[in-house]
């Protein structure tokens, strides 16, 4: 295939010191992302990689057997990105671990230069200390900006915090970043496809699984809804439907057969209000079925209306 080099997807991981950013990075490195991934770490010293995962370690870059590699920043970020996009061997995904005081929105704007595509901003907060941090004289505004910039917020260390703390953290985050997906976690262990992902069909299946498990919980944080169709889709009508979804719909993933590009899958990715439509693998001999999964806050799902809306996008 002689296609244009594809944009490098970028995921930003932010969060104040001690929130569990590095734990999340370690979690990602251990599990991989399903894509060739370069992780730009803030501090190598904090990275714990199982020795048997390491394939190579040279010139400050550690390469793992699962397709991830990892290095630290030694030039201004913008210079690193400009040189990265000129490389012959480029990763499919770049994960940037921001520093504890980074203005994550500013870091994220680095991923909006040609050659890159921002997939999302994840901010990790410590359930126990977030209230205190937000009112801190020195770093309060910094922490607030990190939360406001997030597409996905991880309330971490829920095992150490009391239920009241977690509830309070959840309220704080909800009021600061109403459009973000809020996930609770222990040891920053969240499903990786939640954070990143060009949607694979297997991702969609996992979303369905999650839907099943969520619905069983007494305090389900989220609801999901999915839609499927075998006819080609009109792209502009489809985009208009996504546009019309309420704010309380936090994440949309999908694989779609658009009438204008019948040979390849079109990958739909919406985090918060950020929509990305990219070209996926060729359908080949597969049945060209469009599938879309939506995830939102409880009560945000409107199956009747949505079925009607999405059905109207068929050409």
């Amino acid at each position: 295939m002689s296609e244009e080099p594809r944009d490098i997807g970028v995921l930003i991981i932010g969060g104040y010191l001690g929130s569990g950013k590095t734990t999340l990075v370690n979690h990602i490195l251990r599990n991989g992302t399903g894509r060739e991934t370069l992780v730009l770490v803030n501090d190598f010293g904090e990275i714990a990689i199982d020795v048997d995962l390491i394939e190579a370690d040279s010139d400050g870059v550690v390469t793992l057997v699962n397709g991830c590699s990892c290095c630290a920043l030694s030039t201004p970020l913008i210079e690193f990105l400009v040189s990265l996009r000129e490389r012959e061997a480029r990763p499919q995904l770049l994960i940037i671990e921001a520093s504890g005081v980074a203005n994550t929105a500013l870091v994220a704007s680095h991923a909006m230069i040609p050659g890159f595509r921002l997939e999302g901003v994840v901010t990790v907060v410590d359930a126990e200390t977030i209230g205190e941090r937000l009112s801190d004289d020195y770093v309060g505004t910094t922490v607030q900006r990190q939360i406001e910039a997030a597409d996905v917020l991880i309330i971490n260390k829920t095992d150490l915090a009391g239920a009241v703390d977690v509830e309070r953290a959840s309220e704080l985050l909800g009021s600061l970043a109403p459009g973000a997906l809020v996930v609770e976690a222990v040891n920053a262990e969240v499903p990786i496809l939640f954070l990143v992902g060009e949607t694979l069909e297997s991702d969609l299946d996992l979303f369905e699984v999650r839907k099943a498990s969520d619905s069983g919980e007494p305090h389900a944080k989220h609801e999901t809804w999915s839609w499927e169709c075998d006819t080609a889709i009109n792209r502009s009508r489809f985009e208009a439907v996504l546009e019309s979804l309420p704010d309380r719909v936090l994440r949309v993933k999908g694989v779609v057969n658009f009438e204008g590009s019948p040979l390849h899958r079109s990958i739909i990715q919406r985090v918060g209000s950020r929509l990305a439509i990219t070209q996926g693998a060729a359908w080949g001999s597969d049945q060209a079925t469009s599938r879309v999964v939506l995830i939102g806050y409880p009560g945000s799902i409107n199956p009747e209306q949505w079925s009607k809306d999405f059905n109207s996008t068929q050409s």
Binding site: Y16, L17, G18, S99, G100, V101, N103, Y138, V139, T141, T142, R145
Partner: peptide
């Protein structure tokens, strides 16, 4: 304004 380091760090 923002600090480029956390006070702890």
């Amino acid at each position: 304004a923002h600090l480029l380091t956390t006070p702890e760090e």
